[in-house]
Amino acid sequence: MNWELIATGFYLGRFRYAPGTVGTLLGVPLAYLFGFKWWLVLLIGVPLYLIGVKSAEYMRKITREKDPESVVIDEIVGYFFAFLLIEPTIKTLLLAFVVFRVLDILKPFPIGLFERLPGGHGVMADDVVAGLLTGFILYLTL
């Protein structure tokens, strides 16, 4: 399996500027197609999380960085998990994108705590928590 291709979101993570934001764009069609049922988000999201952990660990080894900037599978999966609680509409897809990026960049409590997990889990878990918080915020406000 090409772990680099997966970790970088088909090389979108190689963009020079804002690779996380560009990578998150791959989560939009994923959420639009499969985010309409909570159980489908889990059925697809959990295996994607595990694949993301493996691919992030691979990239950590070859780059020797704790959280390589080119790894965007975490943003893709994290954004997708926002739709565990909300349905994908044009409005929620856009709002979730903005809220998720803000939470992912600022990493307010408790998101930042999850970066401390070992290996690929530290790369992936903070974004999944940011996605879940995004969904919760939108669920409460919409």
Results as ranks from 00 to 15, higher is better:
41 V>W: 08
42 L>S: 00
43 L>K: 05
43 L>Q: 06
44 I>P: 15
44 I>A: 07
44 I>E: 05
46 V>S: 04
46 V>A: 11
47 P>I: 07
48 L>F: 15
48 L>P: 03
48 L>I: 00
49 Y>F: 09
49 Y>D: 03
50 L>R: 07
51 I>L: 07
51 I>T: 03
53 V>Y: 04
54 K>F: 02
55 S>L: 14
56 A>R: 09
56 A>K: 05
57 E>Q: 10
57 E>N: 06
58 Y>I: 04
59 M>F: 00
59 M>R: 01
59 M>A: 02
64 R>T: 07
64 R>A: 15
65 E>H: 09
66 K>Q: 13
66 K>H: 03
67 D>S: 04
67 D>C: 03
68 P>R: 10
68 P>H: 12
69 E>R: 10
70 S>K: 10
72 V>S: 13
72 V>W: 07
72 V>L: 07
74 D>K: 08
76 I>D: 06
81 F>Y: 05
82 A>E: 14
83 F>S: 10
86 I>M: 03
86 I>N: 01
88 P>G: 03
92 T>A: 02
94 L>V: 08
96 A>Y: 07
98 V>M: 15
99 V>N: 08
99 V>K: 07
100 F>N: 12
100 F>H: 09
100 F>R: 11
100 F>L: 13
106 L>M: 13
108 P>R: 03
108 P>K: 02
108 P>L: 01
109 F>I: 04
109 F>M: 14
109 F>S: 11
110 P>H: 02
111 I>E: 03
112 G>E: 04
112 G>D: 09
112 G>A: 03
114 F>D: 14
115 E>N: 03
117 L>D: 06
117 L>R: 11
118 P>R: 06
120 G>Q: 01
121 H>M: 14
122 G>K: 05
123 V>R: 13
124 M>S: 09
125 A>F: 09
125 A>D: 07
125 A>G: 11
125 A>M: 15
126 D>N: 14
